[in-house]
Amino acid sequence: MTETENNKKLSKEDVQKVSELAMLNLDESQVEAFTPQLESILDLASELDAFDLDKFEPTAHPFGLQNVFRDDEIERVDVKQGALATAPDVEANQFKVPPALGEER
């Protein structure tokens, strides 16, 4: 599905690619099941084509809020009691994870 207008079918490869972006492992049967479901949801988008929306800016906040700030003041919390206590794996007060192979950034 590249355009909502022409209703091109969503392919299983598309679904596979999206699952990779979303960091989800899908087996063949799940891809099979999800493909038509995702397609029918994306088909809903064609309803939008009935409206001329060019002159409308995307909504940022329904109330039009802007310029919301906080002052530059420090608030201290005890991370050991808090976040580290419920972490899956911790060593030396750090979050422990498997090596980041092939993901140098």
Partner: peptide
């Protein structure tokens, strides 16, 4: 590795 762990956890 980290990516595989993330994928497995989310799945």
């Amino acid at each position: 590795n980290t990516a595989a762990m993330m994928r497995a956890s989310r799945t």
